[in-house]
């Protein structure tokens, strides 16, 4: 899941690199992707709260990831009218401290959910349909899992 969703993330025009798991653990690239997905919701003031100069400081990474996840949860709740199921929520400490790809994959899956339900979803879905078939299958399975666990 993580590898496929990283490939999907690379289709966004972010200042921060989305090359691999390490690039994503500080939360900066994911925040920039969310801003591209819905700039009205994940606006500049929200984006400016994500600290970019992180280095190896796991505390700042954890703080950024918490803001990203809180932003996503608010989006699901307010815009999509859903509560995210507990078993879809990532363990952020495992991402910030151990660069865990499984937990990072869960976070990316939630970002995917934002993309395929937002106002510009047509654009994002069409981009997904240009990806390699094997990646599309993983993305489809990820979306189906989100849909099957929706709590309205």
């Amino acid at each position: 899941l993580c590898d496929s969703l990283i490939l999907w993330l690379q289709t966004f025009n972010t200042a921060q690199s989305c090359k691999d798991v390490q690039d994503l653990t500080n939360g900066v690239a994911m925040a920039q992707v969310l801003h591209e997905i819905d700039a009205a919701w994940f606006d500049k003031p929200w984006l400016n709260r994500i600290k970019e100069d992180v280095g190896d400081n796991w505390r700042i990474k954890a703080s950024n990831l918490k803001k990203v996840l809180q932003g996503i949860m608010d989006y699901y709740h307010e815009f999509l009218g859903q509560q995210i199921s507990e078993d879809l929520l990532p363990d952020l400490s495992r991402i910030s401290e151990h660069s865990d790809p499984v937990e990072l994959g869960r976070l990316l899956q939630l970002i995917l959910g934002c993309a395929v339900n937002c106002e510009k979803k047509q654009e994002h879905i069409q981009v997904i349909m240009t990806l390699e078939e094997s990646v599309q299958h993983v993305v489809m399975a990820a979306i189906q899992e989100l849909m099957s666990k929706e709590i309205v």
Binding site: F79, L80, G81, Q82, V116, N117, C118, E119, K121, Q122, I125, I128, M129, E133, Q136, H137, M140, I143, Q144, L146, M147, E150, V152
Partner: peptide, 30 residues
């Protein structure tokens, strides 16, 4: 050719799925 058939089926499944997503109302749950 079975492998070509499988490939076409897989593409069809993907296309159906993503097209159904496109027709879903924006912001609404699944």
């Amino acid at each position: 050719d079975p492998s070509m058939k499988a490939g076409a089926t897989s593409e069809g499944v993907l296309a159906n799925f993503f097209n159904s997503l496109l027709s879903k109302k924006t912001g609404s749950p699944g």
